[in-house]
Design a protein around this nucleic acid. Structure first.
Lengths: 219, 219
DNA sequence: AAAAGAAATGACTGGGTAGTCATGTAATTT
DNA sequence: AAATTACATGACTACCCAGTCATTTCTTTT
């Protein structure tokens, strides 16, 4: 948790600082991200950062919480019950993700790089927790569909949940792999990752759904 | 490429040095891996390393080539033609991977950590190349199956190839995620990652095949 | 206006790193 | 045995970093 100080300095400055660090941690793994460099960019003293935060990890966790919270505002309201079919629901999640990306590009960038970010030895332990919670969420979705009789029940929900999680990640990774999006460049230009690529992504999602439907659906 | 010197110092010493660095790069991302620490472990002078190699990257690339070559000796001989069915072939690849892991644990460790390893900013450019070649290999496999009329042709081979690659990776990741294997610990104990877990992995492979077959197979 | 409190500062500590190079030692050739 | 070549060494350079803290500057309260 940041110190009191950080919330007393006024929103304008707080935002400026937050955004600069979001950028830094979106570009580099935790251990490579440099506080010294960011304060140079910001034109503030390094000591100030330690008036606001306990240490580097505290700062990182703050950014993580902020970004996660911001994304929840977009994705959190989407409920399975509002959709007739899991895959329409699945698409809606991506659609919401795109809105998040458009309106909160820096938070989006930060979360985009999170998986790579967490590989740093110093915060390895966080990785397992994050992964677990993500995978578990997908596992729960799978269980619901199985209970509804819509997903097959001859494969364990653990494996299906993990696979479903991987499908979600793969879609984004393939967008990057194929050069349709360029996260690093987007951060540099302060643009959303999926700027002008909304349709492109949704098409990719459609392709993936078409492909993996038979792996999950009953019959 | 290592310098001449490295091949003049005798196999025993060369192996010792190689293995120590394989361990280091198996444990840490490129930028975190420390030459200083390894030479301390080895009890040799740091300067010696720079008699053998141009720089850190040269050393890393040597290890990469060695490990890749070693793995090819196990996996390279397996040909699709020898199997009636793609999935039997797919299983055979994993089976060969297990032999490699058993007999060349250090190389196996190194390659296991490679994906994480390559996230380091310094060698990011290598990442794309490595990923490309892996994905392309799977894409080619998919194309062959489509041509044979065994895989569906209503999804692009690019997406299917990428997915197939991801399936392979996911199997290993889930083994780790579920705690069935523990790479870090295995390195520490100088044991194969899949020691006593061959059957376990092959069962996981079977589960995955059962699950994803409908995504790839025609009908 | 004076005093008290809050925030900003940057030099400094202690730690780490990759890579260099002049010097020393060992092995090989003459 | 002398000369030459090959390898080994570790102190040293030049650079990073996170985090500290006494001091100064600004802001608010008295």
């Amino acid at each position: 948790m940041p110190k009191e100080t950080f919330f007393n300095i006024g929103e304008a400055k707080r935002t400026l600082i937050t955004e600069a660090f979001l950028r830094e941690f979106a570009l580099k793994p935790f251990d490579e991200a440099s506080i010294s460099e960011v304060v140079k960019q910001l034109g503030i003293a390094k000591g100030s950062v330690y008036q606001y935060f306990e240490d580097k990890l505290d700062l990182f966790l703050y950014l993580l919480k902020e970004s996660g919270g911001a994304k929840k505002n977009y994705v959190g309201s989407i409920e399975r019950e509002s959709f007739p079919d899991f895959w329409v629901f699945f698409k809606a999640l991506f659609k919401a993700g795109l809105e998040f990306d458009r309106e909160r590009p820096l938070h989006s960038h930060f979360l985009f790089n999170l998986i790579k970010n967490l590989q740093s030895p110093t915060i390895e332990h966080l990785y397992k927790d994050m992964l677990s919670s993500s995978v578990l969420a997908f596992e729960e979705m799978v269980k619901v569909e199985i209970a509804k009789g819509l997903f097959r029940n001859d494969v364990s929900s653990e494996i299906m949940g993990f696979m479903l999680y991987k499908v979600g990640v793969s879609i984004q990774e393939q967008m990057e792999f194929k050069g349709f999006i360029n996260p690093k460049e987007s951060i540099f230009n302060s643009e959303p990752v999926y700027k002008d690529k909304h349709e492109h992504l949704m098409n990719m999602v459609d392709d993936y759904i078409l492909m993996v439907k038979p792996t999950f659906d009953k019959n």
